[in-house]
Nucleic acid binder design. Structure first.
Length: 553
RNA sequence: GGCGAGUUGGUGAAGUGGCUUAACACACUGCCCUUUCACGGCAGCAUUCACGGAUUCGAAUUCCGUACUCGUCACCA
């Protein structure tokens, strides 16, 4: 086709497109940003619930943009209406907010480079396609599905490259008359790229994470515009990331094989391609088969973003975990810089794992424990209150009614250099501090106590009579020791171990009896602190409770 | 099948030719501390980096081959 014919063809195909590329280039000028600022983007499809892997890539986008004073924008990639799910977009923005991964721009966040929803940008894509047709880099292809399938089979038999290219691209060189005729017959068509590539040649691509890669040049006539006039991912990516001035494309590594196409498209359109960073998927070793596979929403509860919120895993702890898988040196840095936060860490692409990252649940749990141990009682109280507001209304009410007590209990052993690590998630508070709320304690009684020891109730009663709660922890323990000795117990476990026959037990046994009676558990934070908060009256009530409970059973 | 990437202890992993008799963390085990549980301290936990070959005075690190794993080969993203 001559240039004149291509011009005519473009007008026939896109009569309603009256803008030019220059129009859009002018509309979306270069961003004015500081030197080295990265512009990243998260481009989810609203096709269902958000996966941990999506969250991870969004997290990376955020972190790199933030540390370089750049821009992190959200773009909804909804070019496939067949897969769209009702409420999908709201779900995405909701999850991002919930996880404190907040774009600085984009769908629902404002910005000058919108619309940030691909289904709203059809005209833009078509403008550029029209331009490609005029330049002879694209053409309408009328091939039917069956036809393509047949070619594919033939290619498989002949063991040649599969796809539409070269001699298989039968509509590549249709004359204007032929196109007009098919159009008149209302034949459906897609717009394909007229690829100038040669698959025997290789191109070298530098990926920020994976390093240098040699890939064959793309020689396939890929689809640019689908039958319904909407773009494919590849085309939309190139147009959008150019117009939105993305500097760093961070995405899953399932895209590396289409990289040559993307590069080719950028070149053909006369754009400078962005830098690419392809991240490996988060994997897991299947507990049954032992095979390494992608995290699956069906099999692994922690694959879905909802899981973290529901089970009460603090967002900040999850960020910590995402940071440790994002940069392999983060974990050690964080450990050595306890006073710093994620924002103080400088992430870099070359510290990012090239192979698949395995999900390590134990490590996440540990991170959570560390997180909680660094929070004071009031913070834990407030955050737990927030969590239960949504997921445990009943307990939420109790927490509010017992605020003063709760904060005191949650503050035990918090001020020292060795804070306790007994909470891993908000939902643990209820169980770990089950003794903190009277009404709950009475309700549950001692049914969860699994020990089989019997304790000397009258001994503990007389202990409580003598008990002085207005002394220091050291004095209290000294007095407890004296009490123990006076009643035939050893003052220390060591004494007891030396001559067990001389004693009924040791101080620890006395303390255990008290602990079990007033908390219903064999382990708890500092006993004296608990007794102080409880006060004598409530301690006595609980001993009565224990007695009644034991008599019944 | 083609193309690309990966393969280091129970786990996550550091490591880019000599400083590695393989860091760090988690888990686990033992001991210590201790009123319980934790926390903390000490010690143990890969003589070896998928396998085979090559280069080199020297390789987990470079090269070739094999195996396995993952990704991709749509008018889905």
């Amino acid at each position: 086709m001559t240039e004149k014919e291509r011009l005519e063809l473009a007008e026939i195909l896109f009569p309603n497109i009256d803008k030019t590329r220059e129009y859009y280039e002018e509309m979306y000028p270069e961003r004015e940003l500081p030197e080295g600022a990265m512009v990243t983007r998260y481009g989810p499809s609203p096709t269902g619930s958000v996966h941990l892997g999506n969250l991870f890539s969004a997290f990376c986008d955020m972190v790199y943009a933030r540390q370089s004073n750049g821009v992190f924008f959200l773009r909804i990639e909804d070019t496939d209406q067949k897969r769209a799910v009702e409420g999908g977009i709201e779900n995405i923005t909701g999850v991002l907010k919930g996880f404190d991964i907040t774009p600085t721009e984009g769908y629902g966040f404002g910005g000058e480079y919108g619309p940030y929803q691909q289904s709203e940008r059809t005209e833009i894509y078509q403008t550029y396609v029209k331009d490609l047709i005029i330049k002879g880099f694209a053409y309408p292809c009328f091939m039917k599905e069956e036809e393509i399938e047949q070619i594919r089979e033939e290619q498989e038999i002949n063991k040649v490259q599969i796809g539409i290219y070269g001699m298989y691209a039968v509509d590549r060189d249709l004359s204007l008359e032929e196109v007009k005729e098919k159009l008149a017959n209302k034949e459906e068509y897609v717009i394909r790229l007229k690829s100038p590539g040669n698959s025997n040649k290789q191109i070298e691509i530098v990926d920020l994470i994976k390093g240098k890669m040699r890939l064959p040049e793309r020689n396939l006539d890929d689809v640019l515009l689908k039958k319904d006039g909407t773009p494919t991912y590849h085309f939309a990516h190139v147009i959008d990331d150019h117009l939105m001035h993305t500097t760093h494309v961070i995405r899953g590594d399932e895209w590396v094989s289409s990289l040559p196409l993307h590069i080719q498209l950028f070149e053909l359109l006369g754009f400078t391609p962005p830098k690419y960073a392809h991240i490996a998927p988060i994997t897991i070793k299947d507990s049954e088969t032992g095979a390494i596979r992608k995290l699956s929403k069906r099999k692994d509860p922690w694959a879905g973003a909802k899981f973290y919120e529901e089970s009460g895993i603090p967002i900040e702890a999850l960020h910590l975990y995402l940071a440790t898988i994002a940069n392999t040196n983060f974990e050690e840095w964080y450990l050595n810089n306890q006073d710093k936060t994620i924002e103080d860490f400088e992430f870099s692409f070359d510290k990012q794992a090239i192979g698949g990252t395995s999900f390590d649940e134990a490590k996440l749990t540990n991170l959570c424990r560390t997180y909680f141990s660094r929070k004071n009682g009031e913070e834990v109280y407030n955050e737990t209150l927030f969590y239960t507001e949504k997921f445990d209304k009943e307990y939420n009410k109790l927490l509010k009614e017992n605020k003063e007590d709760m904060i005191q209990f949650l503050s035990i052993e918090k001020d020292g250099p060795r804070p306790r690590k007994d909470i891993a998630k908000y939902s643990d508070v209820k169980e770990e501090f089950s003794y903190a709320i009277d009404s709950m304690f009475q309700g549950e009684n001692y049914s969860k106590y699994e020990g089989d020891k019997t304790y000397d109730i009258s001994l503990i009663r007389s202990y409580v009579e003598e008990l002085d709660l207005n002394v220091s922890n050291e004095e209290w323990f000294q007095q407890t020791k004296e009490f123990a000795v006076a009643h035939g117990y050893a003052a220390s476990p060591k004494d007891y171990k030396k001559n067990p026959e001389n004693y009924k037990g040791h101080v620890g046994d006395v303390c255990e009896a008290i602990r079990v009676m007033i908390t219903g558990r064999t382990k708890s934070p500092d006993l004296f602190s608990i007794m102080k908060i409880l006060g004598k009256r409530r301690i006595k009530e609980r001993i009565d409770l224990w007695e009644n409970f034991n008599h019944r059973s």
